[in-house]
């Protein structure tokens, strides 16, 4: 029997779902083993008998909460897809401004028609079984996780920092080029793609289980960042972690 997968999106750019659609050949092979029953981007008809729910986006409105809870009730396995769902993501940047201001920025005068709450990861509302982190997610990792779930296996998402993969990729460390990087506290799994492409890591995959944030801050400071800069670096993706402390 084929496993039934559902895809659901909350507040986010839907970049992660597009990422899944981006590798059609692999998707076709995968369809031999799964039925995709609820995928806003790809199909219109919806069924509610999915077993594995991939949830994308963060929770930023009251009205999203019951919908997410319903998904949790139906699905045997809930997988958070992407930085927004896993961490609150970029959406959490707004947590550092007053809510009214956010509404005004986003909706202008129409702001009073919308309810908005501090952005949060889906795990703050319902239990989440597995995470596919990243902004956007890594296709290969998504396939790896899906294959693992189909085999009845816990997906292996690394619990070591990006530096491991960055070194394996043979990169020169950004700190050696006079720049800074959040790689030492960020969970690997992306093959250090940003550094390999000449940028630095901004932490989109969230922190490892036990990040040494103090040491990282000290290193950033030593390389010329102020406390303010450092907070901004961390906030891009990991804002929810900070406010929820």
């Amino acid at each position: 029997m084929k496993a039934k997968l559902g895809f659901f999106d909350f507040t986010g750019c839907e970049g992660c779902q597009l990422e899944v659609l981006n590798f059609e050949t692999e998707l076709v092979e995968l369809l031999n083993h799964v039925d995709i029953v609820n995928f806003r981007e790809a199909k219109t008809e919806r069924e509610d008998n999915y077993e594995i729910a991939f949830v994308e986006g963060s929770i930023t409105r009251e009205s999203e909460i019951p919908r997410l809870k319903k998904i949790r009730q139906q699905a045997k396995i809930v997988v958070a897809l992407g930085a927004c769902a896993c961490l609150g993501g970029v959406n959490c940047l707004k947590n550092f401004r007053p809510m009214e201001e956010n509404l005004r920025i986003v909706y202008g005068d129409a702001a009073r028609y919308y309810d908005t709450i501090p952005a949060r990861p889906i795990s703050s509302i319902v239990p989440v079984d597995y995470y596919v982190p990243g902004c956007p997610i890594d296709k290969k990792e998504f396939l790896k996780v899906t294959k693992a779930l189909l085999l009845g296996k816990r997906p292996e998402i690394p619990n070591y920092p990006v530096c491991v993969e960055c070194k394996l990729a043979g990169n020169v460390c950004t700190f050696d080029k006079g720049e800074t990087c959040l790689g030492p506290v960020t969970r690997a799994g992306c093959n250090a793609i940003c550094i390999s492409n000449g940028r630095h890591c901004w932490g989109c995959r969230g922190p490892v289980d036990d990040p040494n944030t103090n040491s990282e801050k000290e290193i950033l400071q030593k390389h010329g960042l102020t406390v303010e800069d450092i907070l901004n670096q961390f906030r891009i993706f990991n804002g929810y972690l900070e406010v929820s402390k």
Binding site: Y160, P161, C163, V164, N212, S215
Partner: peptide, 13 residues
């Protein structure tokens, strides 16, 4: 070791 990031750079290189 207080400052160690457990980043593995030392063992990879």
């Amino acid at each position: 070791s207080e400052k160690c990031l457990s980043c593995g750079s030392c063992i990879v290189v």
